[in-house]
Amino acid sequence: MNAGVAYRDGATPVARPGAVVRIRDLGIRLSPDYAVLIERFDLMPGEAVVLDSGSGTGKSTVLGLISAAIRPTPFGGESTHVLLGVAVGPGIARLSYAGPGQIGYVLQTNPLVPYLTVGENIRLPSRLAGAHIDAEWQDHVIGVLGLGALLARRPDQVSVGQRQRAAVARAMLARPRLLLLDEPVSALDPENADQVEGLIRHLAEDAGSAVILASHQAHRGAFRQTARVAHRLERDGEGRSRSIFATAARERGQAA
């Protein structure tokens, strides 16, 4: 799919077949005095960015907003939300922009369907979309993540770290053009975390996926050089605060 696109850390890609993510002023009011706002989010194919702001600032919320799993709050101004060229909105079928080949999402809570085996969980998004499964790539992903012996087990029969790796495999199985990673290695000790992060990065490069990683541990490991999403907290006079996220502004004409 995007195998030909070079993987680059935050740099402006040479080839630009269209932005993977383009967002302006998309946010949600979580409580009367707390809101999370994505001021600007641009991501080109194969690019990677890291969200590394503190706990509770809204990293998971940002990923939810980008994937349209969270319904945004209207803030008065006009907002833009385009994923892979599709303008996301209430009437748009989810599978038209968030199918398994479009978005792979590793959630912070690592949920798996409890009544399906690990292998069935990994294949579930493709089955839901009725998409063809590339057996060679499947074997590759499962092999790289070391899940081969666990495929027939149920989620309650594997460790938390193994669940995390299964969730990564589920997200990667259809070579998504956008990979959302919410603390994908939080359950692992630092050494293993670095190793798994390296595997994820390796797989994402193979698949040509653009990556958005939310992590506390990104100062080390495979994504330590990757561009950061800027974060700032704005407070108004009445004690209300806004947690604001923005990717780096691009030179004129460069943002698709």
Partner: peptide, 16 residues
């Protein structure tokens, strides 16, 4: 609840 939420996130339509 969580499983139904996950199924929705993974692309299962509401009817399904």
């Amino acid at each position: 609840r969580v499983t139904y939420s996950l199924l929705g996130l993974l692309g299962s339509p509401l009817g399904q």
